Amino acid sequence: MTLNSPLISVIIPIYNAERYLDQCLGSVEEQIYRNLEIICLNDGSTDGSLGIMQEHATQDDRIRIIDKQNQGYGASCNRGLKEAQGDYVSIVEPDDWIEPSMYKDMLAFADQLDAPIDIIKTAYWRIVDADTPHQRKLNCSYKGRIRPLKQPFTIKDASHLLCHHPSIWSAIYRREFLELRGIRFKEIPGAGWADNPFLVETLCQTDRIAYLDNAYYCYREETPEKARAFAQRNTLLPIERWNDMMDILERLRVTDAAILRAHNSRGFTYLSGIIKEVDLSHAEVRKATKRMFERMDADLVFADPEISPGCKRMFADLRGIPCPRIRTMAYARGLIAQGIYSIKNTGVSNTLFTTGVYLKNRKKRTGGR
């Protein structure tokens, strides 16, 4: 590491994470790349999280603890951004961990390109059935799919990144870029999916994105039971965040069809998760869905071969517009291609399992259409 090695500010927003925090902090401290400041934001934890932070801070002087009242994920990340002094900013969630060469490899990759790079993005690991005898480490759903024609690139050349989990933590961001663009998190109570708007704010405001198709970040996925309980408690939250993202696209005057199609896809994905748990006949769900559909370009929806025929019929019904003839063969070919990709990406057994879940809930996910 040279005297000019950039400083990375690692922001860790922490709320009641004592079960996982030692592993998380240890993985950051053990990074091969050493020029880090580690900002731990204790967001009013009521468990032993603060004590774990303090214990680590006595052993590593790169750790700085900010003990604050509970304000939620977005506000904590914003405080971290305000305190950060680094050339780059990284966000690590306290129930996850990162592999030792993450920052070293990201910076080495960026050094091969024309500087400065505003966002260095990578793939990530999905940790399924975490902390059980059945724990599995799977590739994320965009691994191998991001192939921009050149590096660095703009998001319209790799819009597929906008279809998936926001995974804002599988990237580092040039702090000056965030400051110049005035990019901050939406301050929503609790976790609130504040990562959704941040994804669009960052990826849609630069033409200097670099992508490294290696995975380093280990993301603990929620159990199906926790995901179900969240959906029932926060039924409309995904659509609210979709609207926030659409607000940003409109504010930035984004008109690129690939980006808008990707955002439409996210909307249908979120809606499918909602009506799997809460029927579309529910008045508030129906009202929110209709409003979301009204913000989508109908021509883009009907022309998209990756949106299912059932979803297109649902879209037309709620919009009160005629549904054009649907070319089912294009959708079927897409499903086959997705199956082949999934087998290569996550293996046969996982593909068979996810296909079974998809088929079981297919009608419910499209409102019975």
Rank of each mutant, 00 (worst) to 15 (best):
L3S: 15
I12W: 04
Y15V: 03
A17R: 05
E18T: 08
L21A: 03
D22H: 09
D22M: 08
C24R: 00
V28W: 05
E30K: 14
I32G: 11
I38Q: 08
C40N: 08
L41P: 02
G44S: 03
G44Y: 00
T46N: 06
L50P: 00
I52E: 01
T58Y: 08
T58W: 07
Q59A: 11
D60Y: 11
D61Q: 13
D61P: 04
R62Y: 03
K68H: 04
N70Y: 03
N70F: 04
S76A: 14
R79M: 12
R79Y: 11
V89N: 09
V89R: 11
D96V: 00
D96N: 15
W97S: 07
E99D: 14
E99G: 09
P100H: 07
M102P: 05
M102H: 12
Q112Y: 10
D114C: 11
P116Y: 04
I117P: 00
D118C: 08
I119M: 09
I119T: 11
I120P: 00
T122F: 02
W125D: 01
T132L: 00
P133M: 04
H134R: 05
Y142D: 10
P148R: 07
P148D: 06
F153A: 14
I155T: 03
I155N: 02
C163E: 13
H164F: 09
H165I: 13
I172G: 06
R175I: 06
G182C: 13
F185D: 03
G190A: 13
A191F: 10
G192A: 07
P197W: 04
F198M: 15
V200F: 11
T202I: 11
T202A: 14
L203F: 07
Q205H: 13
T206S: 12
A210T: 05
L212Q: 05
L212G: 03
A215F: 00
A215M: 01
Y217G: 00
C218T: 02
R220K: 13
E222M: 15
E222S: 15
A229W: 03
N234V: 01
L237Y: 01
N243K: 12
N243I: 11
D244I: 02
D247W: 01
L252F: 10
T255K: 12
A257K: 08
A257E: 08
I259K: 02
R261F: 01
H263D: 03
S265I: 13
G267Y: 01
F268C: 08
F268H: 04
Y270S: 14
Y270T: 06
S272H: 04
I274D: 01
D279G: 14
L280P: 04
E284P: 06
R286G: 09
A288R: 10
A288E: 12
L300F: 03
F302N: 06
I307N: 00
I307C: 01
K312H: 02
M314V: 08
M314F: 06
L318P: 14
I321H: 13
P322S: 12
P324R: 11
I326P: 00
I326A: 03
R327I: 10
M329A: 10
A330M: 10
I336E: 05
A337K: 15
Q338N: 12
K344L: 10
N345D: 02
N345V: 02
T351S: 14
T351D: 05
T351N: 10
L352G: 09
L352P: 07
F353R: 15
V357Q: 15
Y358A: 15
R362D: 03
K364R: 15
K364G: 14
T366G: 12
T366F: 01
G368I: 03
